[in-house]
Measured scan of single mutants.
Amino acid sequence: MQRVNMIMAESPGLITICLLGYLLSAECTVFLDHENANKILNRPKRYNSGKLEEFVQGNLERECMEEKCSFEEAREVFENTERTTEFWKQYVDGDQCESNPCLNGGSCKDDINSYECWCPFGFEGKNCELDVTCNIKNGRCEQFCKNSADNKVVCSCTEGYRLAENQKSCEPAVPFPCGRVSVSQTSKLTRAETVFPDVDYVNSTEAETILDNITQSTQSFNDFTRVVGGEDAKPGQFPWQVVLNGKVDAFCGGSIVNEKWIVTAAHCVETGVKITVVAGEHNIEETEHTEQKRNVIRIIPHHNYNAAINKYNHDIALLELDEPLVLNSYVTPICIADKEYTNIFLKFGSGYVSGWGRVFHKGRSALVLQYLRVPLVDRATCLRSTKFTIYNNMFCAGFHEGGRDSCQGDSGGPHVTEVEGTSFLTGIISWGEECAMKGKYGIYTKVSRYVNWIKEKTKLT
């Protein structure tokens, strides 16, 4: 034993070699072989497995989906700052455009905790909710729209109204504003409101030439003092309507412009014939205590009207009353817009006519005020429907199939267009061939041609 100890002390290297040989010859039971080890760690190889990531292109799944990435790591994937920024906006807080917040056709661009709407022409605001041009839906104005110097929408209202708090709607500024039905039992019968379409306001006024200088022999019209197929109006439903009495009662109609003036057809009036105007009328054979009678003290036909040349060209006249009318729910003026808007309103496509005229061709006159909704007829169809001249200051309205029309005794009465609950004068009943005849239409004086003249002559002093 002493000898062994001496050998170990003198030859430590020998001992180490012996131990190493023993270990190498022993069977290893701690580690699995290569094949079995792979069965336990069965993990798919990654895209760049075996390579240094710093030297390969980034992978979106590896960089940002398996674990949260930084902007720089995302930049490695896209290799483009702009594309990385677009991805980053949604990656950080989701897609803010998912709810489609942009209105009126706006395009949404996502941002971090926010979004941006790219608005089409005519709109602005956070969600493109603000109209900035009158060309689109009248700028959301209830009545009139004008573009300011910086191309912003400025709404306005006709006389007797003021802008509401929203700067879009119009509200009454006087007790009985024009064009409004205020009798409670008839307010439910107000005709369907007309909503502004998209309009090209630059070209809204037709490029028409008034044929002022045409000389033409007097034409022989049949029954051209021209509501057939209409309905009984309720008291106060058309408070701007008046009836004219002269040699015979209810020979023509008219509309209240203001307390002192009536507008009617020029062919209705004769110099030297006494005319009485009755406002607030409903049943011409009954006294309903809503009527107001006034005498006409002055007749002003349009300066281009000449019955000797043509009885229905420039067929418009103004009547001055001896005493002002007292405005109330049964006696209310009709609204008159400017030339541009009167023309736009007419193009809405349908209007209402009213009167006490004959209820059928050569038949009896109506006792109760009649009204009828009539569609506008395109000019080409209008011209083809008659052998008589249709001037540019006239328009056609009615039904091709016949059966409904204005008729004798309705002449001078109103053709009105309702705009968001307020009625505007767009025409004056003038003439036609018979009444409600198939293929024939009622012919009306186009008020847009005469609004400046009306307003100039009827100013209240």
Results as ranks from 00 to 15, higher is better:
Gly349Tyr: 12
Glu61Ala: 09
Thr133Glu: 10
Val227Ser: 14
Tyr371Lys: 09
Val368Gly: 10
Tyr305Thr: 02
Leu211Asn: 09
Thr386Trp: 07
Leu32Val: 12
Cys141Val: 01
Leu52Arg: 12
Ala207Lys: 13
Tyr450Gln: 00
Met65Asp: 14
Thr194Pro: 09
Met8Asn: 13
Phe71Trp: 11
Leu103Asp: 06
Asn42Gln: 12
Arg3Ser: 11
Asn213Ile: 07
Phe31Trp: 10
Thr194His: 14
Thr276Asp: 06
Ala37Phe: 08
Glu270Asn: 13
Lys188Gly: 11
Val183Asn: 12
Asn452Asp: 15
Gly413Ile: 09
Ala397Gly: 07
Ser169Met: 08
Val359Glu: 06
Lys188Val: 09
Asn343Pro: 02
Asn310Asp: 09
Gly421Arg: 08
Ala337Phe: 01
His361Val: 13
Val447Gly: 01
Glu124Pro: 02
Lys274Tyr: 06
Leu211Thr: 15
Tyr115Glu: 01
Pro333Cys: 02
Cys134Gly: 02
Gly402Glu: 14
Leu211Val: 14
Phe251Trp: 08
Tyr201Asn: 14
Cys435Glu: 03
Phe224Trp: 13
Leu189Cys: 06
Lys89Ser: 10
Gly402Lys: 14
Val416Leu: 05
Ile316Trp: 01
Gln2Leu: 15
Gly122Asp: 03
Ile336Lys: 00
Ser430Phe: 03
Cys18Met: 11
Pro175Glu: 14
Lys146Glu: 13
Pro301Glu: 06
Pro101Val: 04
Lys152Arg: 14
Arg373Ile: 05
Ser187Met: 12
Gly253Phe: 04
Lys188Tyr: 14
Phe31Ala: 15
Asp131Pro: 10
Tyr444Ser: 01
Asn5Gly: 15
Asn328Thr: 09
Met394Tyr: 04
Lys45Arg: 11
Asn59Met: 06
Val202His: 08
Phe176Ala: 04
Asn283Cys: 05
Gly432Trp: 05
Glu86Met: 13
Tyr312Met: 10
Leu369Asn: 09
Cys28Asn: 03
Leu425Asn: 02
Thr342Ile: 02
Cys117Asp: 00
Cys119Lys: 00
Tyr341Val: 05
Tyr91Glu: 15
Met8Gly: 12
Ile454Cys: 01
Glu165Cys: 04
Gly421Asn: 10
Val30His: 14
Lys438Trp: 09
Ser99Cys: 14
Ile300Val: 12
Gly413Cys: 09
Gly58Glu: 05
Thr287Glu: 14
Ile299Trp: 06
Asp111Tyr: 08
Ser204Gly: 11
Asn306Met: 06
Asp315Phe: 00
Phe360Tyr: 15
Tyr341Arg: 08
Ser255Ile: 08
Asp110Lys: 10
Gly349Ser: 07
Arg373Trp: 04
Val4Thr: 12
Cys170Val: 00
Cys170Thr: 01
Ile443Phe: 06
Asn135Lys: 15
Val77Gln: 15
Pro324Ser: 05
Ser406Trp: 15
Ser430Gln: 06
Arg364Tyr: 08
Ile210Ala: 13
Asp111Lys: 03
Val202Thr: 14
Val263Tyr: 01
Glu281Leu: 12
Thr461Lys: 08
Ser169Ala: 11
Cys145Leu: 02
Glu86Asp: 09
Tyr330Trp: 12
Asn306Ser: 04
Ser406Asp: 15
Thr417His: 02
Glu76Cys: 04
Asp93Asn: 11
Asn222Gln: 11
Ser217Phe: 12
Phe395Ser: 02
Ile214Leu: 10
Val269Arg: 02
Ile17Leu: 13
Val353Ala: 07
Arg191Thr: 10
Lys188Leu: 07
Gly253Val: 14
Pro375Arg: 12
